[in-house]
Amino acid sequence: MMIPTTLRPPIDHAPPTSIDQRRPDEARLPAAAHPSAISMRGFNSWYGDHQVLHALDLEIATRQVCAFIGPSGCGKSTLLRWINRMNDTIPGARAAGTLSLHGIDLLDRSLDVVDLRRRVGMVFQKPNPFPKSIFDNVAFGPRLHRVYARTDLEELVEQSLRASALWDEVKDRLDSSALGLSGGQQQRLCIARAVAIGPEMLLMDEPCSALDPRSTASIEQLIRELRASYTIVIVTHNMQQASRVSDSTAFFYEGRLIESGATDLLFTNPKNRQTEDYVTGRFG
């Protein structure tokens, strides 16, 4: 197990302030009481006048890996970016329906998105380390949120890097620029960066699409290990990847949720014809 001691399981964390203050009882409930981390009902989303997501109903279980699959442009990345409200940075993006994280309404206008993003980490398609040292990259989030006692920062960085299986490769050059790392290392650094703020959930938007097969394998291994501590949602184009790393899978097509369920079932015994065509590689 690679769960570091300082990275307590998310629920043990001091719950973040604002969300916590509004719904104190729910936020402190143990994970088991909320089998669904994310739940959505009749969720729609638009970019300007163009509707990209239609009436989605989906539950994502706590401490599991859920994969979003589907052809390009089917809206899976859009959905992912609603979970931590990254769509707020895109002008003209709006949504309606219900989308909640542990019962907290994620579409609430007054929701503190900064705090939400502290609780929901994200890893992007292309590695995007800041042009700073490796250490400063990992320490960036903790420094923002002061989620550490001062002396713990080095320990926190080390544990985060261990959690992303990068520690052994970089422990001797923490002060050198993160841009000098290889693509796969950069992506694992981005995972470490996300882990360091103690999120309860990780969103991964095609995290391996810019990487070579070996780096991909190491990231996949990492995802399987991180499952014990985090709820993970991964968007992927790669069906083998979805079947290798995920517990449940949701298949999207043209902005609609076609089918979702346990990964082994969905891949071996799809109920829907479109799903079957897609997972068997007949289209997409």
Binding site: T17, V114, D115, R146
Partner: peptide, 13 residues
């Protein structure tokens, strides 16, 4: 328990 997060209101200010 871990240390508290800095109050969001201060960062917002």
């Amino acid at each position: 328990m871990g240390p508290r997060t800095i109050t969001t209101s201060r960062r917002m200010a």
